[in-house]
């Protein structure tokens, strides 16, 4: 690779930016609902389900995400000799991120659900709401309001964590910045990458604040 202009570098980085955003969006889209399902498993009266889910959450929280990504990517071949193409890199990234973040979200949901006063359930029961209605109409909306600050924390961490996809050579922002910086012997890609993550998180913070404000119509 020859010398590139700043513009050319930015163009290359922009491609990586797209991939980073893709990882971010896919992870949230799937881990937020999956986290709720896992939270139910964690609170299940069935001891077996509860134990399995507890173990899963402790592994997800207790080992590095980078290691989990590698296991998801290399596992199929090392364990089952399943040949995976290079297209699996991005999929493995998605899967790794989703199952990791779902575990964190599950614990956040659980804390929110368990902090709800029992009176809300009793009122719903007396008024004749079924279990489904009680949860989705009465409990969950209030839980979401309560847990929003913790969710914001996780989402901001996720923005920065997308850079871990470089371990699977996924061409996201950070991998490209690293490659460019090396080939161009130049700090600019790192500065640009830093700016990208910072501005991304600024937008996330503004967006989450907006949602929090939207939910301030009640206390």
């Amino acid at each position: 690779m020859g010398k590139m202009t700043i513009q050319q570098m930015i163009m290359q980085l922009a491609g990586g930016m797209g991939t980073s955003i893709q990882i971010f969006v896919v992870t949230l889209l799937f881990s937020l609902p999956l986290g709720l399902v896992i939270a139910f498993g964690r609170m299940s009266k069935n001891r077996l389900i509860q134990t399995i889910v507890k173990f899963y959450i402790s592994v997800m929280r207790g080992t590095p995400l980078m290691l989990q990504l590698m296991v998801v990517y290399f596992g199929p071949y090392y364990l089952f000799r399943v040949k995976v193409g290079s297209g699996y890199r991005l999929w493995a990234t998605f899967i790794g991120f989703v199952i990791n973040y779902a575990a964190y979200f599950a614990e956040i949901y659980r804390s929110g659900i368990q902090s709800m006063p029992v009176g809300q359930y009793e009122a719903a029961q007396i008024l004749g709401y079924n279990k489904f209605q009680t949860f989705f109409k009465i409990i969950l909306p209030q839980v979401i309001k309560r847990i929003l600050p913790s969710i914001t924390n996780e989402v901001i961490t996720l923005v920065k964590d997308t850079s871990l996809a470089f371990t699977l050579s996924v061409a996201e922002m950070f991998s490209i910045a690293k490659a460019l910086a090396a080939s161009q012997t130049n700090m600019i890609p790192f500065v640009a990458a830093g700016l990208f993550y910072y501005i991304f998180n600024l937008l996330v913070a503004v967006g989450m604040e907006w949602i929090e404000k939207k939910m301030n119509y009640y206390r």
Binding site: G119, Q120, I138, Q142, Y218, R219
Partner: peptide
């Protein structure tokens, strides 16, 4: 259950 209602000591209105 549809035959009876209950008013609680601490109201238990739905705040949202």
């Amino acid at each position: 259950q549809s035959q009876y209602g209950l008013v609680f000591q601490n109201f238990n209105l739905f705040p949202h």
